[in-house]
């Protein structure tokens, strides 16, 4: 009696036998090949996080040291992006601006994810009266232009001298030099306030998207099966629903990253956000605008940096949506 051949076709074997990192690597390569603009967005993400983390080593000059002998010089080999009206190196300021961009972007996305996931999951899963009441609160949240709410929140949280709200206060107006000094603790109060405002305001709209994803997932038979088997609510939410809405969450987070960076730049431009550290939005405001006509590069460099970051994240979000979650197509 011939032994039963239980081996699988060779092609199938090969793909399942390959170690996980090889498969993941292939997936990433395919993503870059089929979605070049999404790949560009991924590169922008890596670039901003990398430059933000290593900015003291990448910057060629101290971003806060004014050199009055070299004010408003155009781009040259000594100053790659030129110098500003105080003679500070523009390239180094853009490099250090990455820190605020990266911190605010990441912090906001994490805070928004926590808030909108808890609200969206609970509201969508339990439904009924609970859902109705929670959604009326979200209605209230969405009755303001986001930027109005952000500005009001930041202003309120930054008010008060010394301790201020939650002991955050405003932080020092002029602090140690960010190259050698403890720059993180120096910008910490203001960055935290901006993150709090952006995260809380962004969570309203995001929770709506998550709620509708939960409603879609809840209707699947496997959730019903879990209920029949006797799984409790936390188990169903965390083990059965959350993993299935993860693609939506990832796509949402990527797009939120772009939105948060744009909002941070906007409030910095208006002179409200992280005002004691170089940020891209702040570099475009004040005297830069007066000098824009004669020194165009002062506007072009930070503006392009903001544009590329936001454009890259939107493209990445779009590409991820096509790959991970076709349901979301055309929602934004």
């Amino acid at each position: 009696m011939a032994a039963l051949d239980t081996s699988l076709p060779e092609s199938f074997m090969r793909s399942s036998d390959a170690p996980r990192y090889v498969k993941a690597g292939k997936g990433v390569l395919r993503f870059f090949r089929t979605k070049p603009l999404g790949g560009f967005g991924a590169l922008v993400l890596v670039l901003i996080m990398g430059v933000g983390a290593f900015s003291p080593w990448i910057a060629t000059h101290d971003p806060n040291v004014a050199d009055l002998n070299h004010i408003l010089e155009g781009p040259s080999s000594a100053h790659w992006f030129g110098t500003d009206f105080n003679g500070r190196d523009y390239f180094s300021r853009i490099v250090f601006g990455c820190q605020v961009t990266a911190m605010v972007g990441l912090g906001t996305v994490i805070l928004t994810a926590i808030l909108s996931l808890s609200v969206g999951l609970m509201s969508g899963y339990f439904g009924g009266k609970f859902d109705f009441i929670i959604q009326r609160f979200v209605d209230i949240w969405l009755s303001f232009p986001a930027i109005f709410l952000i500005l009001t929140l930041v202003a309120v949280l930054q008010s008060g001298s010394g301790g201020g709200f939650f002991g955050l206060g405003r932080g020092p107006e002029v602090g140690p030099n960010p190259v050698n000094g403890d720059w993180f603790w120096y910008t910490f109060p203001r960055t935290t306030i901006v993150i709090l405002a952006l995260g809380v305001v962004g969570a309203g709209g995001a929770s709506r998207v998550i709620r509708s994803a939960v409603l879609g997932t809840k209707a699947f038979p496997y959730v019903e099966a879990a209920i029949v088997v006797g799984a409790n609510h936390p188990r169903i939410i965390l083990k059965h629903i959350l993993p299935n809405i993860m693609p939506t969450v990832i796509v949402l987070a990527t797009i939120q990253l772009g939105t948060a960076i744009l909002a941070e730049a906007t409030i910095s431009f208006l002179g409200v956000g992280v005002t004691n550290f170089p940020t891209w939005g702040q570099m475009l405001s004040g005297r830069t605008r007066e000098l824009a006509e004669t020194h165009l590069y002062l506007v072009v460099f930070p503006g392009t940096a903001i544009f590329l970051a936001v454009f890259g994240f939107n493209m990445l979000g779009d590409a991820l949506r096509d790959v991970l979650d076709p349901r979301l197509r055309g929602t934004r």
Partner: peptide, 22 residues
């Protein structure tokens, strides 16, 4: 369309004012 979503209006406005003068 994505570029328009990403273009900060303050950047565009500053550019327009500067280039109109230039």
């Amino acid at each position: 369309a994505i570029a328009m979503l990403a273009l900060p209006s303050f950047f565009l406005a500053t550019l327009v004012i500067a280039l109109a003068g230039r």
